[in-house]
Design a protein around this nucleic acid. Structure first.
Length: 284
DNA sequence: AACAGGATGTC
DNA sequence: GACATCCTGTT
């Protein structure tokens, strides 16, 4: 796993999330009740016969691991979001290694304010981000016996977040027309209209409002917003004057070629791929 | 407004 | 060849 919160960070994060003043952290998502079930008490362990307390099956273990993974992904996502917000507010970069003394002070003041710590930033004056990163937890404690560890843990979270960003760069979460879909990743790579339509159909999360499957197995799809689909096609092909009249003419060219046809019962804005087996057979 | 398909031009 | 554009006519 590329990113694992230490137990300490985890607990720290949980405490932060359960602090109700911190609407800043986790405002939309429910706090994911991340506290692991307490270990079975010693007497339970002693007095429960092995047969009755059947060990978790492999599937149960897998399910649990997947749950944990999901929770972890969620927490990491929230942390990254929070880091982003703070960076914008403070006008600093996410990676502490790039901070100068002023940035460090900004970050300290922010952290103090956010978690209601007393003023400890004075103890960290004249330190750059690089200095901060080279310090051990003991060094932090030396400067602030009470809150050094908290600051250390928090800095570690930021460093981890920066490392994460480095590892998996700009994941675009655009909900509407994610630009990379419409513009192709490879400049001017020729694309066929039927391929483009399939691309849109593959991403219902982004495009189901303008085009969606009616029957995926049979390859029947419906264009819900003809103008929108035409606009997307026009962007991809660099044809600003594209409209549904012209797009549909191109679809009709497919009739003769046996790529797309009208379904048995012809319906408005509904078409059907002739051989949907080819791509559904390759699994999804 | 969508549909069908011929004609013609473009890359 | 695969459209893009324009057009006539139909549903």
């Amino acid at each position: 796993t590329p990113f694992l919160l230490s137990q300490e960070q985890w607990n720290f994060g949980c405490n932060l999330m359960s602090t109700e003043e911190n609407s800043w952290v986790l405002k939309t998502t429910e706090a994911p009740a991340p506290v692991p079930p307490p270990c079975r008490s010693p007497e339970q362990r002693l007095f429960t016969p092995n047969e009755a307390q059947h060990p978790p099956s492999e599937m149960e273990v897998q399910v649990e691991e997947r749950c944990l993974e999901q929770v972890q992904t969620m927490v990491v996502g929230e942390v990254l979001k929070d880091v982003d917000t703070a960076c914008k507010l403070l006008n600093i970069e996410p990676d502490p290694l790039g901070w100068n003394c002023v940035h460090v002070q900004k970050w300290l003041l922010w952290t103090e304010h956010l978690y209601r710590l007393p003023q400890v930033s004075v103890m960290f004056q004249e330190l750059s981000g690089r200095d901060l990163c080279s310090m051990t937890e003991a060094d932090f404690r030396q400067r602030s016996s009470q809150f050094g560890d908290i600051l250390f843990a928090h800095l570690d979270i930021w460093r981890s977040a920066a490392a994460m960003k480095e590892r998996c760069p700009p994941e675009d979460t655009a909900d509407e027309d994610s630009w990379s879909d419409v513009m192709c990743n490879f400049p001017n790579q020729p694309i066929h209209l039927w391929q483009f339509l399939q691309e849109l159909l593959l991403k219902p999360r982004n495009y189901s409002r303008c085009i969606r499957w009616l029957n995926k197995e049979k390859g029947i799809f419906k264009i819900e917003d003809s103008a929108h689909v035409a606009r997307l096609w026009g962007i991809r092909k660099n044809r600003p004057a594209m409209n549904y009249d012209k797009l549909s003419r191109s679809i009709r060219q497919y009739y003769k070629k046996g790529i797309i046809r009208k379904p048995e019962v012809s319906r408005r804005l509904v078409y059907q791929f002739v051989n949907p087996v080819e791509w559904s057979a390759r699994g999804e």
